[in-house]
Amino acid sequence: MPLIPTAHILRSAEDGGFAAGSFNVILLEHAQAILAGAEQAKAPVILQISENAVRYQGGLAPIAAAVREQAVRSQAPAALHLDHATRFDLIREAADCGFASVMYDGSTLPWAENVRSTAEVTAWCHERGILVEAELGEIGGKDGAHTPGVRTDPAEAAAFVAETGVDALAVAVGSSHAMTVREAALDLPLIAELHAAVPVPLVLHGSSGVPDGTLAAAVAAGMRKVNIATHLNRLFTDAVRASLAADPALVDPRRWLAPARDAVAAEVARLLAVLGAEGRQ
């Protein structure tokens, strides 16, 4: 199936009251698993490649081409998204590679500089039909929107969107990146306030640490895009460890990568149901 715009998925999520699952791709097996899970759930999905993954792969174009080809061969409606980009040259390359959306991360900058740089990126992307997600939380803070204890102020969020023209906003409501245990407590009343105050879809980063029930409640309160990476990586790694422990003589990577891919596919399908996206294809 041809790639579809991220904007289309987010519009459907807002209209349907569900959240789009946005899952990180590091290896080709991640893309295959995410698409297989979306097919099982009959749900749209966002495949996102982060600046860190680009650094690991040694460049964006090869991994982007591989992911795009997998998506075209899949029956799942899928969009391609650049995650946590801080470099404008990488955003330009993503445009050349056919990405439908980018997340520009200026959250560690002072307010005025974040607004200025985000507005510039947004104007450039909009000229090319690319959706822009941005992040706001701790103003000028080291870890941006996901410093523990930081919360996004609804009035500041609305002002930021108005001044930058962004299409989606990642907000700080209690989650944190790279959590390996699912025990984060989200500020659900704040999510509802932000949903009422901000005229663009809300995005939850650091969702790996959020329990199922809280994820569902966040969606009900107005969250429309949910990013998940570490949780799937942990399941992937657990499956690899189990395969190698069961047969120490294994040398063919296909024998231990296939179970890991299957584990992630099953979890993607399950999470899409938690987010209310199942059957929304």
Rank of each mutant, 00 (worst) to 15 (best):
W124V: 05
F18A: 03
P77T: 10
H30A: 07
A260Q: 07
D96Q: 15
M1F: 04
G279I: 10
A242K: 09
C97Q: 15
E193F: 00
L10H: 10
I49S: 03
P201K: 12
I130P: 08
M223S: 06
V102L: 03
M103S: 11
A196Y: 06
I91T: 03
K42E: 15
L244Q: 14
P248C: 11
A258N: 06
A145S: 14
A197M: 09
L190I: 11
V173Q: 01
A239L: 11
P199L: 10
T230N: 02
L188H: 05
D262T: 14
G140M: 07
L35I: 02
A216R: 13
T118Q: 06
Q48C: 12
E133S: 08
A197Q: 11
A269M: 11
A258W: 00
L27Q: 08
E267M: 02
A157D: 00
V181R: 15
G37Q: 02
V181K: 15
A7K: 14
L190G: 09
A266D: 13
G222N: 13
F23T: 01
E156I: 02
A216V: 01
I228P: 02
G137H: 00
P62N: 06
M103W: 11
P189E: 12
V173H: 02
R241L: 09
P44V: 01
E135Y: 01
V102C: 02
G140A: 03
Y104H: 12
E278S: 14
T164P: 01
E193K: 14
L194Y: 09
G98F: 07
G137Q: 06
C97E: 15
E120C: 07
A168Y: 02
E51F: 01
I46D: 01
R87T: 07
V25F: 05
P62C: 06
L204I: 07
G140E: 07
Q57N: 14
T6F: 07
K142F: 10
R68A: 15
L27M: 05
V181S: 13
A245Y: 02
M179L: 14
A260R: 04
P154V: 08
N227M: 01
G59F: 09
I130T: 08
T108N: 11
S101I: 05
G149K: 11
P2H: 10
P211V: 03
A33H: 05
G206W: 10
